[in-house]
Design a protein around this nucleic acid. Structure first.
Length: 633
RNA sequence: GCCGAUGUAGCUCAGUUGAUAGAGCGUUCGACUUGUAAUCGAAUGGUCGGGGGUUUGAAUCCCUCCAUCGGCUCCA
């Protein structure tokens, strides 16, 4: 019979051929690399039987799907290893993740580092046994009997949710409930590494029992594992917490967990970002406002925060009256809007605020600048007429993307989050708001993911996520549509017909949290920030003490030109000063000695690029100013 | 908040089975006057995260609190 390949070519195979035979028919290399197959779009095992005219795609480790199959199969090996070493362990779930896989176990005692080492060793042994992996479709009752006999309570629970006949995968003595597909043989896994172990709630619900989750990764070649571990090590060097310390940007102290302290160099970076951000808002016709950090509790009751957000808020007392430290800027912004009457001609009203907010985050979730308890949002509240809503949302989307591009980001994910369990307002109003966001997104052509139930308590939102150096995704920008707050605060305007009407409100932040965004910037550039953002833009390195006077003059000229410059006045060799400046990732170094003094020039060295030769001082300054001006990344 | 791990000098880290706490870098001083990724010498520096306990004796063993790290839950 004939089967079809993705490129349209036909391949002749035997009548009883399986997917593996198709791979062999294409070539021996592919046959060796084959892990699974996709037949007419459905993922299947290599042992799956073929039919006339099937479209067959052979899946290898080179594709995301192939890696997923490989890692999913590896998680079975991990589970088997744990069962062999800990016969009483109960098995929950073990999926592939973006890089690697995990398996959750219910064990009486958490695994120790020694346990993990033993498990890793046993995984390699099981792979080495080259066990065939076999799929068997069974009935629910038979599967239930099997798992009941083993007292696998989690598998029984999973079984209840499965539609149709469940499939089991067996390798040697061990078998697991699984949809598949899987690799044909455990021997394909040549390298195995247990990465970490952590507690994880069954089904992700903190009311459920906490299980032990083992994270691991595997590869078809040892060299690939070595490379992966090297990459991980490199990624850790970009960690903004490490770089923040090395570059003296910010610090954290036990005296205030989750409250960042900005050092002078960090503040220079912070201001470079916020100055730019402020200017862009002015250009986009926003007006800047500033609202108080502490406000009467009654305000927070009116806004709904007291009902829906209290557990994240800090409270304090002033003259025996309860006040709250603001976790969001909107109620303050609403008071400003409501402070004066509005005409329909005024809209849209776009009020921007660098809003300093405090949120009580659980102790275990704090994470450098990415998850703090105090942060500044580049927040704005746009009040508009109902018919302006979609245009305003579209304008904000353009604004966000424009900002991200300037900072050098083009890899981010967009999410549309809908009504959560805790919400204010009516479902009808929510549906309208969700529809507006979705319409604009669909028109924009941006790819986005639906995230049901993850909206803010007052409205649905579009979120923009950027990934950190270890591929963890962090939310930055957000656009939220809100019909409820205007209602609660009795906002109104006079329409053309003289009637009082209710405006619509958009809450939005572009960078999100200045702190988080700066953390992501640091990781994105591995600390070597583009010139316009660099805390120290140029460092002057005199060759000896004899040229200190000229060096000081150069410093003065640079500062006069608005360039953030420093002079290394230590009595050291120039190599030493260069090494130091290179490690601090200073973009430009200006070496000055006798030649430069005589010619009123500097010898320019660029970070990582090395010596680029002498240049008149004026030209050097002009070059830097130009580069800063265009914000080159 | 939950599970696990970690906490030694400003930084990075040693510290064997409990017995007076170490290195490199940094800092300070001195010498050198330096030409593109580390000049030499000396000095300085720690109630071993806090508190409590066991012990003749604790960085080391136990309890507890705090912070940090990896996750879970939650979120910008």
């Amino acid at each position: 019979m004939n089967v079809r390949l993705p490129d349209g070519k036909q391949v002749a195979v035997a009548e009883n051929a399986c997917a593996a035979d198709v791979a062999s028919a294409i070539g021996p290399g592919l046959a060796r690399a084959a892990l699974a197959a996709r037949v007419n779009g459905t993922p299947v095992d290599l042992s799956a039987p073929m039919h006339e005219n099937d479209t067959v795609e052979i899946v290898t480790f080179d594709s995301a799907e192939g890696r997923s199959v490989f890692w999913h199969s590896s998680s079975h090996i991990l589970a088997q290893a744990v069962q062999e070493l800990f016969p009483n362990a109960k098995f929950a779930i073990g999926p592939a993740i973006e890089s690697g896989f995990y398996y959750d176990f219910d064990v009486p005692e958490p695994f120790t580092p020694d346990d993990l080492a033993a498990i890793e060793k046993r995984c390699r042994e099981i792979a080495g046994r080259k066990l065939a992996v076999e799929r068997r479709v069974t009935s629910k009752s038979e599967a239930r009997t099997y798992f009941q006999a083993k007292n696998e309570v989690y598998k029984l629970e999973l079984l209840d949710d499965i539609q149709g006949d469940p499939s089991l995968y067996r390798q040697g003595e061990w078998q697991d409930l699984c949809r598949g597909p899987h690799i044909p043989n455990t021997g394909l896994v040549k390298a195995f590494k247990v990465l970490s172990c952590a507690g994880a709630y069954w089904r992700g619900n903190e009311k459920n029992k906490m299980l032990q989750r083992i994270y691991a990764i595997s590869f078809p070649k040892q060299s690939m594992l070595d490379e992966h571990l090297r990459m991980l090590e490199e990624a850790q060097k970009r960690d903004h917490r490490k770089l923040g310390k090395e570059l003296d940007l910010f610090s954290f102290h036990a005296e205030g967990a989750g409250f960042p302290f900005w050092h002078p160099k960090g503040m220079a970076l912070y201001n470079a970002v916020s100055d730019f951000c402020r200017n862009e808002h002015v250009r986009a016709e926003y007006q800047e406002i500033k609202t108080p950090v502490i406000l009467n509790e009654s305000l927070w009751r009116r806004s709904g925060h007291w009902d829906k957000y209290r557990e994240n808020m800090y409270f304090t007392e002033i003259d025996e009256v309860s006040h709250a430290v603001k976790p969001m800027n909107c109620p303050g912004g609403l008071l400003i809007f409501a402070d004066s009457p509005h005409s329909y001609r005024d809209f849209p009203v776009k009020n921007f605020e660098f809003g300093l907010v405090h949120r009580h985050e659980k102790a275990g979730v704090l994470h450098g600048l990415f998850r703090v308890r105090q942060f500044t949002q580049d927040d704005a509240h746009i009040f508009c007429l109902p018919h302006q809503l979609e245009d305003q949302i579209a304008e904000v989307i353009d604004f966000v993307l424009r900002m991200y591009r300037v900072f050098g980001f083009d890899d981010f994910a967009v999410e549309l989050s809908t009504r959560p369990e805790k919400f204010i307002g009516t479902t009808e109003v929510w549906d309208r708001a969700e529809q507006a966001l979705q319409n604009v997104l669909d028109k924009s052509g941006l790819a986005y993911r639906l995230n049901p139930g993850d909206g803010a308590f007052y409205g649905p939102k579009i979120d923009f996520h950027i990934k950190d150096c270890l591929k963890r995704s962090w939310q930055c920008g957000t656009i939220q549509v809100d019909f409820s707050m205007p209602e609660r605060f009795g906002l109104e305007y006079t329409d053309a017909d003289g009637a009082k009407k209710r405006p619509v409100m958009i809450h939005r932040a572009l960078l999100g949290s200045m702190e988080r965004f700066i953390g992501i910037l640091i990781e994105h550039y591995a600390g070597a920030l583009p010139l316009w953002l660099a805390p120290v833009q140029a460092k002057i390195l005199p060759v000896s003490d004899k040229y200190m006077e000229y060096a000081a003059a150069v410093l003065h000229e640079l500062k006069k030109a608005g360039i953030r410059a420093e002079l290394d006045a230590r009595s050291e060799k120039v190599g030493y000063k260069i090494r130091d400046a290179e490690m601090k990732k200073v973009p430009y170094m200006a070496v000055v000695g006798g030649k430069e003094q005589d010619a009123r020039s500097v010898s320019v060295r660029k970070h990582t690029a090395g010596d680029t030769g002498a240049m008149p001082l004026d030209e050097f300054i002009a070059t830097l100013k130009r580069e800063i001006e265009v914000r080159s990344t």
